[in-house]
Design a protein around this nucleic acid. Sequence first.
DNA 1: CTTTCTGCAAAAATTTTGCACGGAC
DNA 2: GTCCGTGCAAAATTTTTGCAGAAAG
Lengths: 147, 147
Amino acid sequence: MSESGKRYKAMVDKLKEHNHKLTPQRLAIIKILSQSEGHPSVEDIYRELQRNFPGISEATVYRNILLIKSLGEVLELGFAGEGTRYDGRKPHPHPHIVCVTCRKIIDPDLESLNQMTKEITQESGFEILTYRLDFFGICPECCRKKE
Amino acid sequence: MSESGKRYKAMVDKLKEHNHKLTPQRLAIIKILSQSEGHPSVEDIYRELQRNFPGISEATVYRNILLIKSLGEVLELGFAGEGTRYDGRKPHPHPHIVCVTCRKIIDPDLESLNQMTKEITQESGFEILTYRLDFFGICPECCRKKE
DNA sequence: CTTTCTGCAAAAATTTTGCACGGAC
DNA sequence: GTCCGTGCAAAATTTTTGCAGAAAG
């Protein structure tokens, strides 16, 4: 099964497990979340849905994302200056690299992260629950085009 | 001179350098930005200002923060779920630790960061321009209260 | 004096909520 | 049949914009 297929199934299972109904709108939303590589906004998801659900309401998108978020199946990414965006493919915290030119987002592996979390815990005395790490830069493709 | 005094002066200089007028409202806003340790929101700044400027407008706060941001003298921190917050004391990127209980934000020192940026550059081929790193957890004070 | 800045109010833009109907189970 | 979920509209937020008058330089 494809990666997005697995994510879709995991979300459906989580909904069933918590006795939430599987409405067509709800399923369509999790399908988009499980497939979108571009970290879509509510507005993106709403527009995408309108192709198959002409009468769908924005409130439905907001309410379902709220629900899916409460189940821990989507990662919410607030950016200053633009609306909140969502990652349903990898719902657990992970670093991103965002190309400021083409807005592409890549998920790198980072050895140093566990080390860093330890350092933070020791220095601050906080009980660290989660984190958010984004690098912003220009991707190799856009670097080439610049010249 | 105090740290906040230096920041205040740096912001005033930057305003002069770019031929922006030094209105009382503007000066009051940069004074708050240079002194606030709590990473205030626009709303926080607006309320604070009302003590000395009863008739001040929210639009003035928004417009001035936009200006100061364009001069690179304040760091904008967008969080999903709550409004944008600002750091005028350290306008260049640095890590934060956010207490999810009392919303306090503190600035830790982190040795591992340069190392990490190198790792990212090598792995991704991106030209890294900036980053954003926030840890979320429960601060020592709130940990204690919980029990 | 000139140009920018401010306050006010209206307008956008974004997210939440109340309510009655409809559909999943 | 029973609830939960949806669509719609209104409300609550948050941020931006237009304009006339005020004030900094």
